[in-house]
C-alpha cells in the first residue's frame, strides 16, 4: 500500500512502436499506469491514518508502563504513566494546578502582549519609514544575536527576583521574532503593488493601510507564532527564578520533595500549553488569511 508514485520514462533511443488498430502509441514496455485508481472509502483511510499515527506513542506508553510495573526502572527515577496520571489527579484535587495555570498563562500572555506589540511597532516603523530603519535596524539586529537566556542573571540584578524580572525575560524573548518578521514582511511587499497604489491615487498612509499591511500580514503572523513559542520557552526559564506561584512553583516544590511524578506532570503541562498555543495560532492564521491558497502536502 505504498503511496509513492514512480514515473518511469522510456529510454530516449528507443523508437516508439506504433500500436495496432486504434492508432495508439505504445510509449514503452515499462509505462506506468497513472489513470485514476480506486481508493478505499475516505472515512476508512482517515481512520487508518489515525491508527498509524497513534501506534508508536501507544507502544512507547505500553512499554513504559510495563517496564515500571515489572520493576525494571526505579519509581523515583521514572514513575509509570499511571503514577503520572495519579499525580495530575493529586494536583487537581489539591487545587494546585488550577491555581498555577492562570498565573503562568498570565505571565506568558502579558510578556507576549508587551514584547509582541513593541516588536510589531518597531518592525512597522523600520519597515515603513527610512528614518525608522536607520534608527532601529542595526541596533536590533545586533541585540537579537544575544540569547535571551544569557540575560537572566543581568535581569535579576536589574529587576530583582519578583514578577518584574520574569516579565522582562519574556518581553526580551518575544520582541525580536516579532520585529524581524514584521520588518521582513513589510519590506517584502512587491514595490510594483505600491507603485500601482500610487497611480490609483492612494496616499502613503492609505497605501500602508490598504496594500502594505494586508500583504505583510502572513509574515507578521509568522512572527507572532514564533514569539508565542519564545514566550513559552521564556516562561519556563523565568519561572526558575524564585517562583512562589505558577507551574514553576509546582516544579520547584516537587523537586525539593523528590517527586519526579509531579515534575513530569508539570513538564507535560508546559507541553500542553505549547500545543494549545500552536493550535490557537493556526486558527488565527486560518481566520486572518482567508485569501491564501490552501496548500497541503499530505
Amino acid at each position: 500500500m505504498s503511496s509513492i508514485i514512480r514515473i518511469e520514462f522510456p529510454p530516449a533511443q528507443q523508437a516508439p512502436a506504433r500500436g495496432g488498430e486504434g492508432g495508439l502509441i505504445d510509449l514503452s514496455p515499462q509505462r506506468h499506469d497513472l489513470s485514476p485508481q480506486r481508493h478505499p472509502a475516505p472515512g476508512r483511510s482517515r481512520l487508518n491514518g489515525w491508527l498509524l499515527r497513534a501506534a508508536a506513542p501507544a507502544a512507547i506508553l505500553l512499554a513504559w508502563q510495563l517496564a515500571s510495573s515489572f520493576g525494571f526502572v526505579a519509581v523515583e527515577v521514572l514513575p509509570s504513566p499511571a503514577d503520572i496520571v495519579a499525580a495530575f489527579a493529586e494536583l487537581i484535587r489539591l487545587g494546585d494546578l488550577q491555581a498555577a495555570l492562570p498565573v503562568s498563562l498570565g505571565r506568558a500572555v502579558a510578556g507576549l502582549a508587551i514584547g509582541g506589540t513593541t516588536g510589531l511597532a518597531l518592525g512597522l516603523f523600520a519597515g515603513l519609514w527610512r528614518i525608522g530603519e536607520g534608527l532601529f535596524d542595526a541596533p536590533l539586529q545586533m541585540l537579537r544575536t544575544i540569547p535571551f537566556i544569557a540575560l537572566v542573571p543581568l535581569f535579576i540584578t536589574w529587576f530583582g527576583i519578583d514578577e518584574l524580572a520574569k516579565l522582562m525575560v519574556i518581553i526580551a524573548a518575544t520582541i525580536f521574532p516579532m520585529y524581524l518578521n514584521t520588518y521582513a514582511g513589510v519590506r517584502g511587499v512587491d514595490p510594483k503593488l505600491i507603485e500601482a497604489a500610487s497611480i490609483f491615487g492612494l496616499s502613503h498612509r492609505q497605501a500602508a493601510w490598504h496594500v502594505i499591511l494586508p500583504t505583510a500580514l502572513p509574515s507578521i503572523l509568522v512572527g507572532l507564532r514564533y514569539a508565542s513559542g519564545a514566550a513559552l520557552l521564556a516562561l519556563v526559564v523565568a519561572e526558575q527564578i524564585n517562583a512562589r506561584s505558577g507551574i514553576g512553583y509546582i516544579l520547584n516544590n516537587a523537586n525539593m520533595n523528590q517527586r519526579s511524578d509531579i515534575i513530569i506532570a508539570g513538564i507535560l503541562v508546559y507541553a500542553a500549553l505549547g500545543i494549545a498555543i500552536d493550535l490557537l495560532m493556526r486558527l488565527l492564521e486560518h481566520l486572518a488569511l482567508p485569501w491564501r491558497p490552501k496548500l497541503a502536502l499530505a
Binding site: 512587491d190 510594483k192 503593488l193 507603485e195 500601482a196 497604489a197 490609483f200 491615487g201 492612494l202 492609505q206 497605501a207 490598504h210 496594500v211 494586508p214 500583504t215 500580514l217 488569511l289 485569501w291 491564501r292
Partner: peptide, 19 residues
C-alpha cells in the same frame, strides 16, 4: 500594467476601488 498588480489580500471588488 503587464502584470495585474492586484493586492492578494483584498477581494476582487476591493482591488477595483482600492482604498
Amino acid at each position: 500594467f503587464q502584470e495585474p498588480r492586484l493586492v492578494p489580500a483584498k477581494r476582487v471588488w476591493q482591488n477595483v476601488v482600492l482604498g
